[in-house]
Design a protein around this nucleic acid. Structure first.
Length: 472
RNA sequence: GGCGCUAUCGUCUAGGGGACUAGGACGGGGCCCUCUCAAGGCCCAAACACGGGUUCGAAUCCCGUUAGCGCUACCA
């Protein structure tokens, strides 16, 4: 048995969407599981909409997710000659014919069909032209496109995820494979390339199911073996509709900006529409590859649940060593406008990490600890201050005097805890009455790591300054 | 409209005729822990779309209905 050859074939007409990323991921997992080859092919035949920067964004997105490829990237636009040759071969065998209908005539036919409520299928009129008529039109010369003669027969295949799918040729029309300008239509370019690249498994989105019978017809006309098709279900927004811009973040890059870790994203995407069976959630790369199989893919579309992604990101956050977080957090800090680095930053990340689900969460909390101007008194904080009334500043004052007794050398979490606890005991106060005002003074809110750790990480001078400022 | 695909907790899913009192995870609720919040531990609510078959027995197989989604270009 030959080893599988799969391809991921995005069009550079937009960003890398999560749906495309997942399709790429499934191709990659399948190839790595079977020892097969991944080919990256950029389908840039739509010259109007394709751009180089989109191509770069797609490449970056794949790299970010750790999805690699073995051959390519190849650019479909470079294979026009082969596409034309294939079309002409079909024309020569009368499996295809020249169509002289203009865009306008076709639009008119379609409009007429719409009006009567019948589905528009090209009636094949140009396919019935006599030799002389064709020669005469060619001599004029009149431009023509090339259409495939759709045979009136069953076109079915055993889909690797859906099992058998069947269409009738009579429900399809003689569709155009080559435009009048000599450029190929998608369905021809895809088949021609998949044949040339010896693709054995076509793993792509469900939205291509209705293209598949047309493509199989081309394989048959060209006399080439038909690959295995695996149509993976769509990804939907929370409203059950195909994920699109109006759902907010849909591009892989959006999640990067939100502070999602690439491994978390990849793990989440893998589990969206695929299951290894059983209860597995967090899957290391090796496991994922080992367990992957096409028949573990779900048939029904899946709703993208951001909350679960964030939970999973939190899981990965706790698995990743702080050193690996330094770079990405620094990046988010830059955007917030706060500088942080080295050991200090590592300690801050550590302090705050357990309460964070994204890198952005981490960066925001780090920023507050690093830069007093980033403190924002949140509603809960304000509430606490007004509820405590005068006690707020009195308690801060006694905390201030107790804490300033500690030298810089003694300013450590363990000592701070002892100091604060004995202060509360001495004054007969509840621990919370001592701690919460400090928390609000230092962060503006009522939520943080334990106060002794918070003080330690903010540092003696800065902590005392913030207490002093909040006391007034 | 036509063609096609799909249907298990709100969401992601396990399940492949008896192991189902339908399991796990996210989210929700409660309790414990606790200086707050997370984390952690324990517990709770929550689903086989509907109707017919087949079978001793159906979430599982078949048919129909309904609903959702996709496609329906000289776009990809």
């Amino acid at each position: 048995m030959t080893t599988p050859r799969v391809r991921f074939a995005p069009s550079p007409t937009g960003y890398l969407h999560v749906g495309g990323a997942r399709t790429a991921l499934f191709n990659w997992l399948f190839a790595r599981n079977t020892g097969g080859t991944v080919i990256l092919r950029i389908e840039d035949t739509d010259k109007e909409r394709s751009t180089e920067s989109h191509t770069q964004v797609i490449l970056d997105g794949l790299a970010w997710l750790g999805i690699t490829w073995d051959e390519g990237p190849f650019f479909q636009g470079g294979y026009g000659d082969r596409h034309r040759t294939d079309a002409e071969a079909m024309l020569a065998r009368d499996q295809a014919y020249r169509c002289f209908c203009t865009k306008e005539e076709l639009d008119a036919q379609r409009a007429r069909a719409d009006k009567t409520g019948t589905p528009f299928l090209y009636d094949g009129r140009c396919g019935r032209l006599g030799k002389e008529e064709i020669a005469a039109r060619l001599a004029e010369p009149r431009p023509f496109s090339i259409r495939l003669r759709m045979p009136d027969e069953e076109i079915a295949w055993d889909d690797a995820v859906h099992e058998r799918i069947s269409f009738q040729g009579r429900d399809l029309d003689d569709f155009i494979i080559l435009r009048s300008d000599g450029s190929p239509i998608y369905n021809l370019a895809v088949v021609s390339d998949d044949i040339a690249m010896e693709i054995t498994h076509v793993i792509r989105g469900d939205d291509h199911i209705s293209n598949t019978p047309k493509q199989i017809a081309i394989y048959r006309a060209l006399g080439k073996p038909i690959p295995t098709f695996a149509h993976v279900p769509m990804i939907l927004g929370a409203d059950g509709k195909k994920l699109s811009k109006r759902h907010g973040a849909t591009a892989v890059g959006d999640y990067r900006n939100l502070g999602i870790l690439p491994l978390a994203m990849r793990n989440f995407l893998a589990l969206l529409g695929w299951s290894p069976g059983g209860d597995r959630e967090i899957l290391p790369e090796a496991e994922m590859i080992k367990l992957f199989s096409l028949d573990g893919i779900q048939k029904k579309p899946a709703v993208f649940d951001l909350t679960k992604l964030e939970w999973m990101n939190g899981e990965y956050l706790s698995l990743v060593p702080v050193e690996d977080l330094l770079g990405p957090v620094k990046h988010h800090l830059d955007e917030i406008g706060v500088k942080g680095d080295g050991q200090r930053l590592a300690a801050l990340i550590d302090a705050v990490k357990a309460r964070s689900r994204t890198l952005l969460d981490i960066a925001k909390q780090v920023a507050v600890r690093l830069d007093a101007t980033k403190i924002v008194r949140d509603p809960k904080g304000t509430q606490l201050v007004s509820k405590m009334g005068d006690a707020f500043s009195t308690n801060l004052s006694s905390a201030l005097s107790a804490l300033s007794a500690l030298t810089a050398d003694d300013w450590k979490a363990a000592n701070l805890e002892v100091t604060l606890k004995s202060l509360a005991e001495r004054e007969g106060k509840k621990l919370g009455d001592v701690m919460q005002p400090i928390r609000v003074a230092l962060t503006g809110g009522t939520v943080s790591e334990p106060v002794n750790e918070l003080l330690a990480v903010v540092g003696r001078d800065e902590s005392l300054a913030r207490l002093e400022a909040a006391r007034r």
